[in-house]
Write a protein that binds this DNA or RNA. Structure first.
Lengths: 210, 210
DNA sequence: AATATTATGTGATATTATTCACTTAATTAA
DNA sequence: TTAATTAAGTGAATAATATCACATAATATT
């Protein structure tokens, strides 16, 4: 089996997202060229990326939108129920709890964790909140595979260690800290400051009349 | 002049972020090795990246944290005060209000906007909350150039229209909706579902023993 | 003061990712 | 039915990126 490039894997979810948009727009078929244009990529790259996983297109016709979306979803594991646990229930954690996008993509928030006694044992938006100290037990019981880290920055590494102690290997980090994890653990950080800086640059060049 | 790799540019803000953390921790000097470890990079890469812009380190000693941070900030153009307005004060809006990264990067939250009478006129985390209907006046008065859209998805386009009516040309969109804007407006959307999907893929291939 | 050590800076090299150039299959038109 | 066309699929070439290996400078030690 040929090794699939990291860069390819990262693009798969982009393709998924765009295919959902196309699907909403009522498009039934899409060409590698069109998909590439919409994502600012090279058509060859789109085809090559897809070719690592199979032959999804039809020559002279293109790719069937819903079929390709289904295939990529399958590859990305979006069809299976991915159970996630949210660690930290401040404003950010609660905002994420309200986020509809999880269920749309087959993600299920299975448990909440916090250290605040006022929250532990209570139910937030229909989800049970547990003590951080009980995480190992609950994670195992619920089969949670993905952790969402939404604690205050100062607690990031400590809570991270708890998460690792639960055997979770996939983490979505919403803190601003760069937490250290073992090599077999995948951590992705959500950071929008790069976009902020870009917008700042844009608004500045706007007002300069450039 | 040697061409600076795109990958290097993208890492500069990572370095900035980590240097700010180091600065907060009271570190005055940092080694390329340490910076690399904290960011999960190779020390050589850190040095090479920095070397495109100059010689900031001292052999046998390392890099002066605040000096390097100042240099990188200069390079990235993070200097002027950018005034932003937050539209929508649900959990997400409040989470953003708490977000320290704004001020650290020279962004200043100048006003909050909502439609909830209970919030209008009140002060949240030291910031004044105004009625959405007063946005035009306040935006002009405060000189707000960037809008953060954090309203419920259903209200996205309506509030977007209000924002546009204020003459704001730079928008950071936290809703899941695809909002329509004129061509001279820059909108950046914050979406982490691609990362979620990547994590799902990873956790699945893990359990398959791949 | 001389020597050893350590960490930066960097040309050379290895690795990884992208694009080219072409083949193949499906469709359309003659 | 045959030829022309079009778009996917793909090995090979190119380009971009990361790492190695070592020269260089600063500091510490003897």
């Amino acid at each position: 089996m040929p090794k699939i490039p990291d860069a390819t894997i990262k693009r798969l979810s982009l393709y998924c997202k765009e295919l959902r948009v196309l699907s909403n727009e009522g498009m039934e078929v899409v060409l590698s060229k069109d998909l590439a244009n919409r994502l600012d990529l090279n058509p060859t790259q789109v085809r090559k990326d897809l070719s690592y996983f199979g032959k999804f297109g039809r020559r002279k016709r293109g790719y069937d939108v819903s079929e390709l979306l289904a295939n990529l979803s399958e590859i990305l594991g979006i069809t299976t129920d991915n159970k996630i646990g949210i660690f930290g229930l401040g404003n950010l954690g609660r905002a994420l709890l309200n986020f509809k996008g999880f269920s749309v993509r087959g993600f299920y928030v299975a448990a909440l964790f916090d250290v605040d006694p006022a929250k532990i044992g209570s139910t937030l938006f229909g989800k049970q909140c547990y003590a951080l100290s009980d995480a190992q037990e609950i994670v195992k019981k619920e089969g949670i595979k993905i952790a969402v880290l939404a604690v205050p920055d100062g607690a990031a590494q400590d809570v991270m260690d708890v998460i690792l102690g639960c055997g979770i290997k996939s983490i979505l980090n919403f803190t601003q800290r760069h937490v250290v994890v073992p090599e077999d653990v995948m951590i992705r950080s959500v950071d929008f400051t790069d976009k902020l800086e870009l917008l700042a640059y844009f608004s500045r060049s706007k007002s300069n009349g450039r």
